[in-house]
């Protein structure tokens, strides 16, 4: 029968429309539904309206979310090495990067001229970066991570879109805040919350101390 298809189609639309208002009544017409309702509206039970009112409410990003990478540095109130790079400029991220958007200048000791394990300069061209996450995946020092901050729109690309070391560096605390589970897992694998090298150094010192005290006794 002609017209039945249209009626049925309108029925589907009506169902969604009614469900939207049923949900609104359920949550008392509050403009932004309370937190406990959010997983329902943005989850599998959603029947009616599905909209996230973006600038006022944002969907939090999952832990594994990846956008532009950032460099982990020690917290700025770290007792021993505040703001120290975790990066040792080993260059693995630059090699693993598919579009080759990472530039690293290896740090050298100004006196001896020999390389030291920290980058002198570190650049990422975010106009080339494809957010694939290989740099973070293959970094042996947990020093480069994928950021969650996607609000990077700008009016000018020439000055703003090559991120230098200063722009890329973020505190370890930030990484803990955006990915608590993974930060904890990685810390467990390293054997502590500090950088691998610091932990190794401490272990060495502890061993030396133990030895000294042993020989002393």
């Amino acid at each position: 029968m002609y017209g039945s298809g249209i009626v049925r189609g309108l029925g589907v639309t009506l169902k969604h429309f009614v469900n939207t208002y049923l949900e609104d009544i359920r949550w008392g017409f509050r403009r932004h539904v309370p937190d406990e309702a959010f997983p329902l509206r943005q989850g599998l039970e959603t029947r009616g309206i599905f909209t996230v009112e973006y600038p006022d409410e944002k969907i939090a990003t999952p832990e594994r979310f990846r956008f532009i990478p950032f460099l982990v540095v020690d917290n700025y109130d770290h007792p021993e090495r505040p703001g120290h790079d975790w990066c040792t400029s080993c260059g693995i991220c630059a090699k693993a990067c598919p579009p080759q958007c990472i530039w690293i200048v290896r740090g050298t000791n100004p006196e001896t001229g020999r390389p030291v394990p920290e980058p002198a300069e570190f650049y990422i061209d975010i106009d080339i970066c494809m957010n694939c996450g290989f740099c973070a995946e293959f970094c042996p020092f947990d020093a480069i991570k994928m950021d969650h901050d996607y609000e990077l729109a700008s009016y000018d690309r020439t000055s703003a879109h090559i991120f230098n070391k200063q722009r890329l560096s973020k505190e370890f605390r930030y990484w803990q805040s955006i990915a608590p589970t993974r930060a904890a897992e990685e810390a467990q694998a390293r054997g502590g919350w500090e950088h691998k090298d610091v932990l190794k150094q401490r272990e060495k010192e502890a061993r030396a101390q133990a030895k000294a005290s042993e020989s002393g006794s």
């Binding site: 600038p55 532009i68 996607y150 990077l152 690309r157």
Partner: peptide, 21 residues
Amino acid sequence: VDVYVPGCPPTPQALLHGLIM
């Protein structure tokens, strides 16, 4: 170009941010 929205691809929220810009 008036506004640049970086990302590969930018999430819809990033695009909305660009549109607000």
